[in-house]
Write a protein that binds this DNA or RNA. Sequence first.
DNA 1: ACCACTATAGGTAAAAAACATATGTCTAAA
DNA 2: TTTAGACATATGTTTTTTACCTATAGTGGT
Lengths: 130, 130
Amino acid sequence: MTHRRHARSRSRRLVRPGHWHVHARVERFVEPSLLLLLRERPLHGYELLERIPELGVEGRVDIGNLYRLLRALEEEGLVQSEWSADLPGPAKRTYELTAEGRRLLDRWAEALNRAQGTITGFLERYEEGR
Amino acid sequence: MTHRRHARSRSRRLVRPGHWHVHARVERFVEPSLLLLLRERPLHGYELLERIPELGVEGRVDIGNLYRLLRALEEEGLVQSEWSADLPGPAKRTYELTAEGRRLLDRWAEALNRAQGTITGFLERYEEGR
DNA sequence: ACCACTATAGGTAAAAAACATATGTCTAAA
DNA sequence: TTTAGACATATGTTTTTTACCTATAGTGGT
């Protein structure tokens, strides 16, 4: 692969002068998203990419990072995969959740609950002083 | 300043083999936190550091990054500061929110509302399939 | 004098996210 | 029938964000 250098924007996603996108996204939210989708049934990477928006993720998910994450999760025994020769179309690697992956999902759910409490607290304090 | 290289953990904050800290933190949450605290009254950096835990932020906030963020916010006209010679103790730079900063806080509140919806959706779907 | 605490600040590394490209299969339309 | 586009997986690289570490100085107590 060849790559060139490209001029890119300065920082903080300017829209108009003095205006930025404000996102408020949860760090590494794609990880629990993948685990949750895979708990429901085995899927391959591209399907996961298509279904993640169902979970309300703002902005598109980076496909490159998604595949990298899947392989990282597999290395750690959180998901398992195999090539599905049977399915039509290009070769697909189908992932399924392991017991350990399921436990990690449970931990994510707890963490997301705590995060929700934090956000609620913030918003309450915000509303108080409007 | 001199710096040495230090051996650091591989990745993903291992606690015990196969166990990670799962955080679910909101990206750049300190920014809205500072804006909210400053809306209530002017404060200096060290006070902000002490008060941020009130907002339910897990883990300690990096003091170096906090000061950098304050200066970045000032460059962008979101906060204003001046040295407070009057106050006792070491020199303190007291920050206050500008009108523009207050508008940014409003945008953060909207974004956090959306994030909460996303998390709620995730957790509902999680509970369904338990 | 020394120590701990308050206060601000800069340097750098690691982690996470964004951006870009490569490569191949299969399907449907021109 | 070749060609365009969707499907599918993957790697390379840059930018942004967070974490870690060090520097400097005033102040108050012992």
